[in-house]
Design a protein around this nucleic acid. Sequence first.
DNA 1: TTGAAAGCGCTAACAA
DNA 2: TTGTTAGCGCTTTCAA
Lengths: 342, 342
Amino acid sequence: MTDSRVTVREVARAAGVSVATVSRVINHNGRFSAQTEARVREAIERLHYQPNQLARGLRQQRADAVGVIVPNISNEFFSRMIVTLQAGLFAAGLSIVIYNTNHDPDMERQCHASLAAQRVSGIVSANSLEDVRAAVRRDVPTLYIDREVPEGGLGPNVSSVMSDNVASGRLAARELARSGCARPMVLTATAGFPVTEVRTRSFAQELARLGVPLDKKRVIHPPATDFPSGHDAVAAALDAGLDFDGVFAQTDRLAMGALEALHERGVRVPEDVAVVGHDDILLARFGRPPLTTIAQDPERIGSLAAQIMLQMIAGELEQGRHELVPVRLVRRESTMRGQNVA
Amino acid sequence: MTDSRVTVREVARAAGVSVATVSRVINHNGRFSAQTEARVREAIERLHYQPNQLARGLRQQRADAVGVIVPNISNEFFSRMIVTLQAGLFAAGLSIVIYNTNHDPDMERQCHASLAAQRVSGIVSANSLEDVRAAVRRDVPTLYIDREVPEGGLGPNVSSVMSDNVASGRLAARELARSGCARPMVLTATAGFPVTEVRTRSFAQELARLGVPLDKKRVIHPPATDFPSGHDAVAAALDAGLDFDGVFAQTDRLAMGALEALHERGVRVPEDVAVVGHDDILLARFGRPPLTTIAQDPERIGSLAAQIMLQMIAGELEQGRHELVPVRLVRRESTMRGQNVA
DNA sequence: TTGAAAGCGCTAACAA
DNA sequence: TTGTTAGCGCTTTCAA
């Protein structure tokens, strides 16, 4: 197995060269004869040499690692994103160090402090609550997921990747309109989801364009983005006698809760109320009825994030990149009525 | 913010002491006067000093980090486990470096090589495919999740945590027996899940004890552990005319696929066939009908893993700890018949 | 093309 | 109680 006690010195001795030469061969730096290279490689192989990343990082003033800060890795969206992010960075020799913040700003600060102490080469921060300007101050390549960045960007060290939330709102609006909804309701995803307003605004605009007004009293802000919040919000709306015939829930978990509440009260979906969710998590197809939803593409977001991060670390970017990842409507039974049935 | 360019030297100068003293204060090592400590702490505070973990790690011959190797972090079980694992280690000043192997032994080897190069203080390895003896050779505290370790353990540097799989099999057997099943079928979770056989064996034993024999031809090994595999396995069984009135599926995703296949063929659950899953993932309560399942406790597994890992790293263990985490039956409609209805 | 040596920031052994 | 200093393993000047 890998004997972690072998150092450059021993490789150098075994190959009959200096440590500098060994280093050059390993890093493809400077010049050396093919013969020397062969001897060094043979020694590395034979001794099972593994360069000490700590020493390397200390010398280079940065670790071959990227910090990843997410609200909660057990959220399907983040965990799926991380799979491709990790793979993309690993292929380039970078490892990832992960932290959960649980949407706690103080925890987020602690994570940044820890990453600074580790001298990571970059930071991927999802649903960050901090001021994006902090990234500029830190001077470490930072990539935000699902976070609006000011017009004009923030220099070469700050990039962002997120779903096309304007398209999300638009698609949801069209789908409900096509289903014949006249009084749509929105369940937003406020807490810690900075992109929710973009979706709501775009949803309202597209509805207006289609001649369906969105009444403010039908924009509801549940306390969280989970199943119980969706359930309780809709149950409360029904109790209050709120009149609605469509729901755009900004997470699938909210939507599933909404379906449950509607089912309990005997409100038929989609006949009486059409429902559109957001994210297309595994659960969505198991809704009662199966849930129409706006699918995000976390795998694409993760691999794009890896690619951009590598560019930033390599200093290849004059300006940060700010990418929008397409979303798509996945139509299931929860909106199958009117035009949609055809 | 944290200025990562400040070093011990500058703190020492600012506090009017030597670097050694600063180091002592930071690490609570050796003796120093309260007055000195106050001065040093003040300087640290004022300069926003952050010890360089790379230098520290190099000096100590190990990084304050733990490697975590899982088949796929987007599997709900692993991501939930990692949340508490990460929190427990973070509280002790350790960060976690994560890798996905996708059940690929070669990738697993690469991950270990990378972790060795990073001189991590410990490794948590879930569903490992390697020979457990490799951990002894590596000489780094290793904690296996869901992996049997030879009787007598493997010394102080190898521990393990897993669900009580014997109980899993037993609970599933009793539940199906109570539902009146006479011809139960098993969908195993072969690929990369080394604990599946324990469950099957325990299931068979308990059934036998209850007077219900488990026919070998009703033990089926789907190619994977996901929804389609469960669906296809059950569809094939029905096509082949296999006679069964109960299913123990060793992952909930398999079970959900089974439910779907049964539904398609008009086989009623639980009236004609009772179904028990395993894991209690979010999906389970949305089964048609809601799925009875054996709940694992990934949060408990993660926090226990953190605790044991810290003990191993601190050298507090004479022998590795090998812990079984309780599972429990979550009864839902998919087994609600016979005795179970009462 | 190669080697010698400085030094990254820290901790710990030894001295005072 | 505190300071001086060697050295962890590596990369990268500078010299040859």
